[in-house]
């Protein structure tokens, strides 16, 4: 039973509050409140992080973008900085839920909730993002890609740890990105598929590519084979089609009674990858 709700003003205050009682962090609460109502999560104390000013920033420091734990999806989606320097993330955050949910739910919460196709997480993995984690042992860093333990399970233990921010290099000229999503309706729908692409070109050749797809496994999947295959290739239609065909070997979408068969999603995945590559290449060549 929930007995207490505290709003510390500092990161230390958050960690101190977590140490007493069966406590847990709440940011937007758009997932947590539902879990509590359904009896899936038992909590005695909620530690609200929205009063910690340092967690509410979106900033760029030495070419790295830092997004605080209390920043909402809508703030990310509408940030000029993110739209210019990491458009893939702005687009991903823009597709989450509805405006009301985006105004409340936080981007970091989306990552820690660890759903297989969390839109922000899919984009952040493509950006090579790293999470900054505070706990009683001090600070540590983990790539977002490695935060997943399983479906709905994060390595982050929100009863002991606080992710303060997520950091990734801003995109430079010669780089491009894309976020492509297929859903059953235009808002308030989990993705049937989502794909994130970040690419670096040197001249008309691919220097490197990061391609993330979901939900094709319990967590977002890096299409590492396709990434390897495309390295050094010429930017042209042939390369795009070959890369799109190569992702299938690493994608194993399940049959979902609600969101389409695995067979369908596996097949359409190639279209989404193709569209993502075309968009990202075009952006990189601008």
């Amino acid at each position: 039973m929930l007995k207490d709700y505290v709003q510390p003003k500092t990161v230390d205050g958050v960690l101190a509050s977590l140490r007493q009682g069966n406590a847990r962090i709440i940011a937007g609460g758009t997932d947590l409140m539902l879990d509590m109502k359904a009896g899936k999560t038992e909590v005695e104390k909620l530690v609200d992080i929205n009063c910690v000013d340092s967690l509410k920033k979106i900033e760029i420091v030495d070419g790295s973008i830092i997004i605080g734990a209390a920043v909402t999806h809508q703030e990310v989606a509408t940030s000029k900085l993110i739209q210019e320097k990491a458009p893939v993330l702005a687009k991903a955050c823009r597709t989450v839920g509805s405006l009301q949910i985006r105004n409340t739910g936080t981007m970091v919460g989306n990552v820690i909730n660890a759903q297989p196709a969390a839109d922000a997480a899919v984009a952040l993995i493509a950006l090579g993002a790293v999470a900054e984690i505070f706990d009683e042992n001090g600070i540590s860093y983990l790539p977002v890609e490695e935060l997943y333990l399983g479906v709905g399970q994060s390595k982050i233990d929100s009863s002991k740890q606080l992710v303060t921010s997520i950091k990734f290099p801003s995109l430079q000229s010669g780089q491009g990105s894309a976020f492509v999503r297929l859903a059953q309706r235009g808002a308030l729908a989990l993705p049937m598929l989502n794909v994130s692409v970040v690419v670096t070109l040197s001249g008309d050749k691919v220097d490197w590519l990061r391609l993330v797809m979901a939900p094709v496994a319990p967590k977002p999947v890096r299409a590492t084979e396709a990434e390897k295959m495309i390295q050094g290739k010429q930017v042209n239609e042939e390369t795009i089609i070959a890369t799109a065909n190569a992702v299938a070997s690493q994608a194993n979408p399940r049959d979902s009674a609600l969101r389409g068969s695995g067979e369908y999603r596996k097949s359409v995945l190639q279209t989404l990858v193709k569209r993502g590559l075309i968009e990202a290449f075009a952006e990189a060549q601008k």
Partner: peptide, 10 residues
């Protein structure tokens, strides 16, 4: 959540 009523954007 699971019943696909069209939304305003659809």
């Amino acid at each position: 959540h699971k019943y696909m009523l069209p939304t305003a954007v659809d």
